[in-house]
Nucleic acid binder design. Sequence first.
DNA 1: TGTCGTACTACATCTGTCGTAGTAATTGCA
DNA 2: TGCAATTACTACGACAGATGTAGTACGACA
Lengths: 109, 109
Amino acid sequence: MISSDVIRGYNDTLILYMLLERDSYGYEISKNIRTLSEEKYIMKETTLYSAFTRLEKNGYIHSFFKEEESFGKRRTYYRITPEGLMYYREKCAEWQVTQEVVNKFIKEL
Amino acid sequence: MISSDVIRGYNDTLILYMLLERDSYGYEISKNIRTLSEEKYIMKETTLYSAFTRLEKNGYIHSFFKEEESFGKRRTYYRITPEGLMYYREKCAEWQVTQEVVNKFIKEL
DNA sequence: TGTCGTACTACATCTGTCGTAGTAATTGCA
DNA sequence: TGCAATTACTACGACAGATGTAGTACGACA
């Protein structure tokens, strides 16, 4: 299991990755992250939804309702914006640097 | 440059790494981190010193004064404890998992 | 004598994460 | 049909780690 402080600052990136292929909503994204990480990382609900708020405020995603399911379950779907894509790319680049740097401080003992 | 949220949770690990070889003190550790990371990560002073406090509170390091320089500059030296070494090893293992997981969400576009 | 580098400490603030709790609809199954 | 589990959220308060700002104090160098 991964501690939250480790992945902190990358939750947004994981969410954006999930939106690259297609629009999605909270629960689905949550499950997909869980599956893709092979159960090694489970994002808390509150973390997920507060990330949505932040991402939308920053213009990286935008929310909408699907018309074909307008009654009943009331799912909020999210779509990544061009700014979100740019941000995702930056975070990916940053991640490469981070890996290089942190690996200099890792020693097998 | 690396954002703080990325490396958050690993500041302690970087510091412990610096203490593996020999005892050291704030300023020196700070400079060594800077150098080893090739200027890609510069730990803020306040971050560094609050990490020392936390690490000592958790029993991962312990502080002392060198007798041969007991007057004058008053440097606080730190030494890693066996518990600190264990903690360091755990963080290294966790880091491997974190890399694996995050890399699943990284795509070159 | 004054500035720069060293070596800290104090304090208040911010951000992201988390715990707890609660709402409400839909689905599974007995 | 009835009740639990799952889905799909929202609200609120707390906390930890990082940061900004500021200030102290000593030594070296010019």
